[in-house]
């Protein structure tokens, strides 16, 4: 029962975060919001009984993907400054 409540709460947060991530005008905030979805998804994998996937999603999905997005955004903005 407690796991169902957790999944519903986490799911609502994830769906809202997904809609916000697509509507934000600020790209930096949108990237961080999209990283939050992956982080919460790893909790859901843990509830679903697959800790291996939870570890992978927490480290890759929310960690490295966000970092790579931020580096790409940084590169694009640096191009702007050079000219």
């Amino acid at each position: 029962m407690i796991s169902v409540i957790m999944i519903v709460v986490l799911g609502v947060i994830m769906i809202v975060a997904g809609i916000i991530a697509l509507h934000l005008k600020n790209l930096l905030a949108a990237i961080i919001t999209a990283g939050t979805i992956s982080l919460l998804a790893s909790v859901i994998y843990l509830i679903l009984g697959s800790p291996d996937v939870a570890m992978t999603e927490a480290s890759i999905g929310s960690g490295l993907t966000t970092i790579i997005f931020l580096y790409a955004l940084n590169k694009v903005q640096k191009e702007d400054k050079n000219d």
Binding site: S59, I60, G63
Partner: peptide, 17 residues
């Protein structure tokens, strides 16, 4: 235990990051 080559590799990449 949970984990393995992919997760361990990512953790090592995080150290270099």
């Amino acid at each position: 235990t949970p984990g393995g080559g992919f997760q361990g590799g990512v953790v090592i990449a995080t150290a270099f990051l």
